[in-house]
């Protein structure tokens, strides 16, 4: 029963979601929304599980003086201060919660996001320096696309004799656009078609109980 019940629930929910896509008639039309609402309710209730886990894990680290336990009081302090500020004064604009969110959480998130610039540089350097023809092709394509995305690319092109008065005065940006719209788009669509098939196959395996490893691989 421990195995059969989840399989039955998965089958019924999966089939209902498929049917409601093809059958607009009630009750099928309502079932999709209904199941989505149930999921939102479960997910909202599950936030408490996350909170309890967060507090438990860090309290355990502090009590056991585990490695790097010094960070845990900072996490708990941040969590409780934000929770208390929201619960006591509300979360509206101008309240302590909003002040801390706008002046601490948002800048910290922006800091993490801005690190991306440095990581892009280091990853690009590694990708481009590989000494094979594919890396060279990648480097060349990236160079043209980057140049084509800024006005200076076409300006440089127009410095060539006859380029400004020729049929393609914006050749660099045109080539960049072609690279993005044709080879790049074709590659992306191939990935998406493959992924869509993978989604169908995975869904069928789970709905019909062929894939059971999410239940612990039980047979």
């Amino acid at each position: 029963m421990r195995l059969v019940l989840p399989l039955i629930v998965t089958f019924i929910c999966g089939m209902l979601m498929i049917l409601q896509f093809f059958i607009p008639h009630r009750p099928f039309s309502l079932l999709g929304e209904e199941l989505s609402d149930w999921y939102m309710i479960v997910a909202s209730a599950a936030i408490f599980l996350g909170v309890v886990n967060l507090v438990q894990v860090h309290l355990m680290k502090i009590s056991q003086r585990a490695r790097n336990w010094q960070y845990s009081p900072v996490v708990l302090l941040g969590f409780f201060v934000m929770t208390a500020a929201g619960a006591v004064w509300g979360v509206e604009e101008g309240r302590p919660f909003d002040y801390m969110f706008q002046n601490m959480v948002v800048p910290m998130g922006a800091t993490m996001f801005s690190l991306l610039a440095f990581f892009v540089a280091s990853a690009a350097f590694r990708a481009f320096r590989s000494s094979n023809w594919r890396a060279t092709l990648l480097l060349l394509s990236a160079f043209i696309v980057m140049l084509g995305r800024v006005p200076i690319g076409d300006m440089i092109w127009r410095l060539f004799p006859g380029a400004a008065s020729g049929a393609h005065p914006n050749l660099v940006s045109e080539v960049a656009e072609w690279l993005m719209q044709v080879p790049n788009m074709a590659g992306q669509r191939a990935v998406m078609i493959g992924a869509a098939l993978g989604v169908v196959a995975t869904s069928l395996r789970m709905i019909f109980g062929i894939e059971r490893s999410y239940l612990g691989g039980a047979e």
Binding site: F119, V120, A123, A124, R126, A127, G187, Q188, V191, M192, G194, A195, L197, G198, V199, A201, T202
Partner: peptide, 24 residues
Amino acid sequence: AMPSQLPFFIAACDYTLIGEELFA
């Protein structure tokens, strides 16, 4: 299966499962 993130993984990781390979 996010096409826009695949290049980053290919550049930074040793192995990358592309799209359908994740589901396989």
